[in-house]
Nucleic acid binder design. Structure first.
Length: 491
RNA sequence: GGCCCCUUCGCCAAGUGGUAAGGCCGCGGAUUGCAAAUCCGCUAUCCCCGGUUCGAAUCCGGGAGGGGCCUCCA
């Protein structure tokens, strides 16, 4: 399958070709761990996890790396403020980040390299850059000389001269050019520090990504991802120092995800308008958040709002109900159905249900192959749902008759749904409904009321039957009468 | 000031030259004792103006509005 990818470097969609046949190396910029993750931090991981799922499905062997930057000015300031050591702070915040990723079913990250665990590699790279004339030590710091890099600015389409016009460039007597950036920073007393040829200090902001991606993925790899806001200076600098060091092309495709917004403004720690993931997850299921992040194209900004999450939850509910229905029909648990890791035989269309499902499956894959259009792909899944429900309605699958043939067909259709949703990392496991399934007492009580209501209905005492149902509705318990039995659910 | 992006139904959102996916909300119908669930049906000519083209939401030019980056940021 031909995969098309929008490449920031060329500002156009290109055919996806890998450096090494059949393998994909992917590096995504993770957080600087000084404050708990906000919703925006989850965008990249979810998107790139989904991209990995898709590429793996196509048969690629994908290695996904997300770095943890655990030494930085921000950590020093924040840890002092909170009375922690930098290490303690980094560990606490890293744990928060990893927990959030796990809840969002970001399962595909193979390595989480930490900057502080790669000081050796960082120093080696800086030495190499100095030796090659791209960097210079100055007063205990080491700077990268942007004028020595021929194509500095190519990722962001900027001239170094233009950059100098920026008002925020820090004037430092230690730099040769205003645009030069620190590879190594001299430590002030009490700051985290490591020995180096230039005296005690710590890495600058961008170098850790160069050193760690090179170590884990080699000098040339396939996909480099991150938030749009990292394009400059972080990625530009990373690119410059990596290619200057290796004299080889760095990442082949640069993918930048759009930024999360709240109230029309970018969500960020510096704006102070961030929604902390942990707080959000107290009110919303992580699956709803993952669904939000996948419901639009990854390059678009995503507008976060409470109402939107509620709306999307309603959208997911129809699938949750469908899985219950699937169980009633087949006796099988949707969540136990196999998840295909790789693309299997082409799904046969033919007549009947699969004749409708197979072309939609194809459309889904085409959406994904076209710059990972998850929004379009999810739309397809929403088209499958009524087809499956209609089939179940028309074939009378919930009534007693044998209909083994139709049941099997239905099963096949749902397997396909399972396959595609698993590529999105959705519906991998049952959502935990706080009381419903787990609380035996509640279930017993509601079933008692259902039985009483059934008697009332049998006696045509609809007033009583309706009152029971109404009172339960007020308690957020919904009854559904269907052939032969009444079921209940919360919500 | 420089670079870049966006503007599609009430809201969200696909669509990148061939005549507008999908979701939420709303309305009507089937089903139901009544509901719920499910199914069916209904609601847009794509910010404005001009151009290219047999044909444009899609390409070009201009305008309006919104956003991102210009060394803190996923």
């Amino acid at each position: 399958m031909r995969v098309r990818v929008y490449n920031t470097l060329t500002r156009q969609k290109e055919d996806f070709k890998t450096v090494a046949e059949g393998r994909v190396g992917m590096y995504v910029c993770g957080p600087t761990v000084y404050k708990p993750s906000h919703v925006g931090h989850m965008v990249g991981p979810v998107i790139f996890d989904t991209i990995k799922r898709f590429l793996s499905f196509l048969g690629y062997q994908v290695t996904l790396v997300v770095n943890i930057t655990d030494v930085d000015d921000k950590l020093i300031v924040e840890s002092a403020k909170r009375g922690f050591s930098v290490t303690q702070l980094a560990e606490t915040i890293t744990a928060d980040y990893l927990t959030n990723l796990r809840l969002l079913r970001v399962d595909g990250i193979d390595h989480f390299p930490r900057a502080t665990a790669h000081i050796r590699e960082i120093i080696d790279m800086i030495q190499g850059l100095i030796a090659k004339g791209f960097a210079y030590p100055s007063g205990g710091d080491v700077y990268f000389d942007v004028t020595r890099d021929e194509d500095y600015g190519k990722l962001c389409n900027r001239d170094p001269e233009q950059l100098e016009a920026g008002a925020r460039i820090e004037v430092s007597g230690l730099k040769r050019n205003p645009g030069d950036f620190a590879l190594w920073k001299r430590a002030k007393p009490g700051e985290p520090q490591w020995e180096s040829p230039w005296g005690p200090g710590r890495p600058g902001w961008h170098i850790e990504c160069s050193a760690m991606s090179m170590k884990l993925l080699g000098p040339s790899f396939d996909i480099h991802g991150g938030g749009l806001d990292l394009q400059f200076p972080h990625h530009e600098n990373e690119l410059a120092q990596s290619e200057s060091f290796s004299q080889l092309p760095f990442a082949r495709f640069w993918l930048h995800n759009g930024l999360m917004k709240t109230g029309d403004k970018k969500m960020s720690k510096s704006e102070g308008n961030e929604i902390v993931v942990t707080e959000l997850l107290k009110k919303h299921h992580p699956e709803t958040l993952r669904y939000l992040l996948l419901s639009s194209h990854y390059r678009s900004p995503i507008e976060y709002s409470e109402d939107r999450l509620l709306e999307l939850r309603r959208s997911l509910e129809s699938f949750y109900r469908f899985f219950d229905r699937f169980k009633r029909i087949t006796g099988l648990d949707y969540y136990s159905l196999p998840v295909t890791a790789k693309q299997s035989e082409p799904v046969q269309g033919g007549e009947g249900l699969m004749g409708k499902i197979a072309p939609l499956r194809q459309s889904f894959l085409e959406f994904m192959a076209d710059d990972f259009n998850t929004g379009g792909a999810l739309g397809i899944l929403h088209e499958m749902l009524p087809i499956l429900n209609r089939f179940a309605d028309q074939a009378g699958l919930e009534s007693a008759g044998p209909a083994a043939r139709a049941r099997e067909e239905f099963h096949q259709g749902v397997l396909c749904l399972r396959e595609l949703f698993s590529l999105m990392g959705l519906f991998l496991e049952p959502i935990s409904t706080p009381a419903a399934a787990s609380d035996q007492t509640l279930d017993g009580v509601v079933r008692l009321l259902i039985d009483l209501r059934a008697d009332a209905r049998k006696n045509k005492n609809f007033a009583l039957a309706d009152q029971i149902r109404k009172r339960l509705t007020e308690l957020n318990i919904t009854l559904e009468d269907r052939q032969g039995e009444t079921t209940w659910r919360q919500g």
